[in-house]
Design a protein around this nucleic acid. Sequence first.
DNA 1: CTGAAAGCGCTTACAG
DNA 2: CTGAAAGCGCTTACAG
Lengths: 327, 327
Amino acid sequence: MTIGDVAEALGVSKTTVSRAISGKGRIGNATRDKVLDFINQHNYTPSAIAKGLAQSKTYNIGWVIPGDYNSANLPFFQKCLMGIAEMASPMHYDILVLMVSENDISHLERAVTNHKVDGVILGRTLKNDLAVEYLLNTGLPFVAIGTVDDGRVVQIDNDHRSACRELVSLLMMKGIRSMGLIGGSCSHTVTEYRLSGYKDAFAAAGLEPEEENIFLDAEPGFRIDKAVEALLARKVQCIVCMDDSICVNALNKLRRDGAMIPDDIKVASLFNSPQLEAASPAVTSLNFDTATLGREACRILMNYIDGKEVNKRTLLGYDIAIKDSTK
Amino acid sequence: MTIGDVAEALGVSKTTVSRAISGKGRIGNATRDKVLDFINQHNYTPSAIAKGLAQSKTYNIGWVIPGDYNSANLPFFQKCLMGIAEMASPMHYDILVLMVSENDISHLERAVTNHKVDGVILGRTLKNDLAVEYLLNTGLPFVAIGTVDDGRVVQIDNDHRSACRELVSLLMMKGIRSMGLIGGSCSHTVTEYRLSGYKDAFAAAGLEPEEENIFLDAEPGFRIDKAVEALLARKVQCIVCMDDSICVNALNKLRRDGAMIPDDIKVASLFNSPQLEAASPAVTSLNFDTATLGREACRILMNYIDGKEVNKRTLLGYDIAIKDSTK
DNA sequence: CTGAAAGCGCTTACAG
DNA sequence: CTGAAAGCGCTTACAG
């Protein structure tokens, strides 16, 4: 059934039917109700695609995430997506998943050039981000989840730097001085901000972090194991992991090596996850409300698409959950 | 730039440009090359949405997953999605994520009635599945990942029943007789098949499983903890968990209770995940190739959409990884 | 308050 | 081998 069928059945014009549905333009109450009743009874729903063509809109937003299994599988992206969906659905937007890698954004490019999305949300940001660069060129509305050192990009992030500084400072107040840090890829901007926060805390205490205690680009598996071994050998009092995935990895390794937490060594994570809470002992970590992050990112994008003025930069909070792993 | 601009610039008709791009219809080689060269140089890309309207197609497929965080976050869905994307991309299809719950499929309904998808892949199947019922009524092509007791639905699944039977039989050959089983929601069809496999193994050994050792509908957290406690009290030799999420939960609980694996009690999982492999000790589990499952589901859907004949039922294999947790 | 008509950017019989 | 024209199912100035 098309809008034409409805118009014909009711003896009105397509224009009128369109107005009744969209609520735009002047239309008599009686006429509107007649149309609305009819389409409800015959449960007619307009074709989003035809509507899209007429309005040059798609009612889709692109959700860009890393396409490698280790990253895509992070709870972070799932939870973020749920927040986005929660915001997008009532606005009648759907979500197109676009998987990219650090050096291949063809999937994103195709969706954009084929006019399949009205806007894009970037799930994370990189140091030299092809996606950011590309989207900036197209002029398509997009918001980056993460921090980008470019005033032109609309971005939203949790305040990772302050959060890390605060957690590390807290650990220091417990008397911890030698603190290992295991972090992810240096090409991710968040890695940089977390590292800065860690250093900020040392600076605030008038101390200098030891470079030998810092392990970055620590991929899951072998490299994390090596980092843990090294830190164990250096007899650090605590290991701080940049995210939950690294932390789970480190916990497994510590367990295999027979290190007892928190007696032999303490552990903390700069990102939360249900798993870390359920671990035994539960792991001290920074907590971020990822669903809200997604929701807000989406809200901003919707406004952006609608041509409203949006804040270039939004910074969301955090809190710290002290658990037994740092007792 | 539109197809009209290209036509004008080249002094040919829109028809000709369309044919050069689509490869359909007769067209001279010289003309085709001229058009193709031009659009490459000016990197013109046709609007998928206009194309869609003309062809009554969207080049989108719907990917239906549970919308609650615990389920959506399962590595299974992520990996499946990666397989789907791998197959869909080269066919120029994009993926629309549709989150539903057991009693609310409105998101799916909207995408379908608004004509935003050409077909749908169901990420899992339930006992009385609203989505299956709904899609059957619409007549839209869809394939269910999972097992549905309805000859009309195109479905694909791993052979969970045989796999479970084989793993349990293997454990029995190691002399294990008292075997706990902790499983997920009874509304999921896979729970039923796994249970059947477990019972098959007992039957094959001429034994009867003890009902007191079977805990179903064990949600993460409290209920799994309770099940583990009960099984510990019953002094079973082994706990079999229906999936990786349950297993991680159970491992945490066992650890908290000071039970040593495999000496005090053995543990096995009916679904694999990297975490279970990295655990210490590594956990014996059934291994399924989830990416292939997604890829094949997508391949079938593409054929279905194209009007080709497709198998109603596809059954994929599995293998068994014996690790230290059952030594 | 309502409608005829043009337009969104493609595809595809049909005719030549 | 190529093109004019109708059509996909909507929206939206413009006119009344």
